[in-house]
């Protein structure tokens, strides 16, 4: 019986000033190494472009080889590179049986919005799976917008989460809405 080669996983992050060609440059390096991009999220934050990729490769391979290939590419584009080796038990995704909700929080900008909201959620075991924030409005009247996608623990529902955040909503004078976005399978 032939033994299946072990699959190795790495988390790769690349951050730097946005310009055309960053994704092509980084993924060319990965392609040359024979890397699979298993999961990725790349986005522009202010003028910075941020890439986070989970890449997989057949053993034998090393983190050093990955860095040796990508570092010159990133240096040429002025990007910062980070590589982390993932252990096998980190790779499997935890699947939740609970509802998936989108929480929108917005209001006059003030310190601590993200912290105060996420602290309440964490205390109730609500798991954040996606979060993005944006400062909008005018310099005179800055408005903070935060969108969170969360997985609720079993037994919790959207109304429960809304109630959980009700005190905070009046204290911070922000709008907080919770809606269910659990996928429907056809």
């Amino acid at each position: 019986m032939t033994q299946q080669p072990e699959i190795l996983h790495y988390a790769v992050s690349v951050v730097g000033k946005d310009r055309p060609g960053i994704v092509a440059g980084v993924t060319e390096g990965l392609f040359n190494l024979g890397c699979n991009i298993a999961d990725s999220s790349c986005t522009m934050l202010a003028g910075e472009f941020a890439m986070i990729l989970i890449v997989s490769l057949k053993s034998p391979f090393s983190k050093t080889r990955l860095i040796d290939e990508l570092k010159p590419v990133c240096a040429k584009m002025g990007m910062t590179l980070g590589v982390r080796t993932l252990h096998q038990d980190e790779v499997a995704r935890q699947e939740s049986d609970g509802e998936i909700c989108m929480i929108s929080v917005y209001g006059a900008d003030q310190p601590g919005i993200v912290y105060r909201v996420t602290r309440e959620l964490a205390a109730c075991n609500v798991n954040i799976t996606d979060l993005n924030t944006k400062l909008i409005g005018t310099p005179e009247e800055p408005v903070y917008v935060m969108m969170l996608e969360v997985a609720l623990p079993e037994g919790q529902n959207a109304e429960g989460v809304e109630q959980l955040l009700a005190d905070l909503k009046s204290e911070l004078k922000v709008e907080i809405g919770v809606r269910v976005v659990t996928p429907v399978a056809f």
């Binding site: 995704r93 996608e149 976005v181 056809f186």
Partner: peptide
Amino acid sequence: LFLDRVTSIKTGLFRRKNY
């Protein structure tokens, strides 16, 4: 397929569990 009509690429927890 619904993939031809997706308006947001934010996906939830139901992607493959193992890569």
